[in-house]
Each structure stands twice: as C-alpha cells, then as structure tokens.
Design a binder for these strands. Sequence first.
DNA 1: CTATTTTTACTAATTGAATTAGTTTTTACA
DNA 2: TGTAAAAACTAATTCAATTAGTAAAAATAG
Lengths: 198, 198
Amino acid sequence: MTRRMKLDLSIILQKATKLVDEKGLDQLSLGSLAEELQIRPPSLYNHINGLNGLKQKLALDGVKKLNEYMLQAAVGRSGDDAIRSVSEAYIQFVRIHPGLYDATTRFPDANDKELQQAQESIVQLVLQVLQAYNLQEEIAIHMVRGLRSILHGFTSIEQMGGFGMPLDINKSFSILINTFIEGIHTVVSNEDEYLQGE
Amino acid sequence: MTRRMKLDLSIILQKATKLVDEKGLDQLSLGSLAEELQIRPPSLYNHINGLNGLKQKLALDGVKKLNEYMLQAAVGRSGDDAIRSVSEAYIQFVRIHPGLYDATTRFPDANDKELQQAQESIVQLVLQVLQAYNLQEEIAIHMVRGLRSILHGFTSIEQMGGFGMPLDINKSFSILINTFIEGIHTVVSNEDEYLQGE
DNA sequence: CTATTTTTACTAATTGAATTAGTTTTTACA
DNA sequence: TGTAAAAACTAATTCAATTAGTAAAAATAG
C-alpha cells in the first residue's frame, strides 16, 4: 500500500541526480529513471523534453548547486585563503556529485538564459575573490579562466581515475592551488609584462 | 570503376578520427562510419569489437599521437621554455583533434597495457622537462599532475565553448602557463613547506 | 595451378532504448 | 458534481547496435 509518490520535476531531477552520481551520466536512461520512479518511460515526457532535455536540466541544476556551494565557501574569507576555500569546495562538490558535474560540462544549453546567469554568477564570485590582489581588470579575468581550468582539469582527471601513481591526490591538489597562488603573487608584481605577452 | 579500398584497422581509425573530429565523439556511429567506408555496419565487427571497442582504439591512438606531438615539442628545449613549448603542443593537438582527444579522456581502457605505456611515456616526458628545476622527486610528480590538470582543464573548457567573455583565449593560456611557471619557481625555494602541506 | 582454409563481407533477424500517437485516468477547481 | 487540464498509460514506430548464419574472396598449402 505504498502511496504513489507525487511526481514533479524536482523529484525527477532528484532521482536522476542519484542515478548519474551512482552509475555515471552515460548510464542514465529514461527506462532506468522511470523504473526508479515506478512509472512508464513515456510518462516522463509530461515533465521533461526527452532524455536530452533531462540532461540539460541536470546541467542547469548542477551549475546552480555548484555556485551555491562555492558561495558558501567564500563568505567571510579573502585573498589566498578564499581561493583555497573556494577550490576546496569545487573539488568536494565534484566528488559528491560526479555525474551531475559531468552533466554541467557535457550538456549545457547555450541558449538557456538561466544557465548563463548561473555561470556568470560563478565568474563574478571568483572575480570578487581576486579583488584582494588588485589585479588589472583584464588580468583578473584571465586568472578566473586559469583557476577554472585548474579546478575543472584536476577534478575531471581525478574522476576518470587518471592519476595512476600512488601519491596522495589531496596533496597534489593543495600543491597545485598553492603554486597557482604563488604565481599570482609574482604576476601582481609584473603585471604589465604579462598583459602584453612579454 | 573505383577500386574497392582495402579495408584494415588503420583505415577504419583514420576515417573514424575524421568523423569524431568533425562531428563530435557522440555522433560517431557504426552506421555513419560504415557509410563512409562504403560497407555494411556488421562488416566492421571483423575488425573492431563493436562501437565501444572502436572508441577504445581511438583513445589509444589519441594518446600515442599526443605523446609524439609533445615529444616533438620538447626536443632541444629545457626549463620554462620546454614547459611552454610542450603546453603549446598540447593545446594545438586538442584543437586539431578535438574528437580524438575527447576519446582519450572518455574511453581509455584501463586494462590495455599499451595504453598504460603511452600514458606513462607522457608522464616521463614531463618529468624530464621538470628536471631543470631540481625538484624533489615527489614534488615533481605533483607538478606533473598540476600541469596536466591545467592543460586538460583549459583545453576541455575551450572545446566546450566555455570561455564566454570576449577576451583573447590564447592570452589566457599563456598567462596561465606563465603563472604556473612562476609558481614553480617560488615553490622551488620553499620545497619543504610544500611537502608537509604547510 | 588447384584445392582448402581463413578472412572478410554480406543479408536477415534480434534486441534495446527513445520517441510519438492516441487514449484513459486522475486531479483541480468552478 | 461536472468539466477542463494534467499526467499517466498502452501500443506502435524508429533507429542503432549487435548476433547468427551464409557467401564471396583472398591467402596459402599441396
């Protein structure tokens, strides 16, 4: 006598997130999702625009959640400390939600205004964090791209099991972040050379 | 009277590479590949182990090619110069072979001895490059992971069209690499603190 | 050269998943 | 309580991968 769970988009995304985080994004199918939800696959079309539409909704949801997560990590901190904290949050998020994160990188809908806004929000957050260094506006944006590359690259490789050597992965991460931070400090002192490309 | 092209694995990989680089890895299908090769899809099974086997062969091929590419870029250079050159080669390779590169990160066969060897070869190459800095062995490996994260992260985001702002992407890249290099220089001077995690 | 074996391509059939069409049930609420 | 909208269903379609079994072609042994 299980009462039928009331189905709506948020329930669907919740179950889909669980599935992709546990089995991987490529294992997500309308069949498996429908089974989890105890409905038939076609019923899902009343809520989502097919499998691809679902993945795009996951991508949006993932970016929003990542943004919140990083925001929490940034409050009350500044400078090096803020960079480390935000970076730590990023890697933690990906570890908790590998499949959801994967969706954010593989199925972002370039036309989705809400998604663009969430992405922009992350950029702004990191720009805030970098304010402490008084970088020139343009350099600051390059640095945002740099940090994002580092975070995405490291987490992606970790998720694919790409770090083969028997060496503490967390140490690799903190050294990477610290190396980048030290680099920023140096760049701050020689900004003009870097802008023109020396 | 077109003579039937003699089909073998290398021809198949060649055409498959062309397809994935032009249309994207997810668009690769045995149907489209067979059509290009003017055979029927089942015939492919005489050469490859299904679609997944094909993707794994692409992954192996991609890593080997990337390795060669980086090797070429490294010869005759050392230190900062070598890091820049190898990094430049990496990003160039991904720009030339986006689909093939994608395969190397999404379909590596963890049990393939040949693949492991090719991957190891890249690690060794970068370790060679880092010798110039006289880093402690352990730190050096962390740095290899760091550089790899940077290169994979940056190229992945570029490929997904993730850098939205209207700012020169090549400049972002060179600043990122230079920042990392500056970071290494600083780390060299304070190695012990970094090893223990300060 | 010819016969045999192996390789490679083929057709036909199967499977599995997404999707669409069209219908029925349920729910909301006037 | 009746009606409209929402949401679920069954049935059918499509498309791609794969498998089974057969035929053609090529390599090779005698």
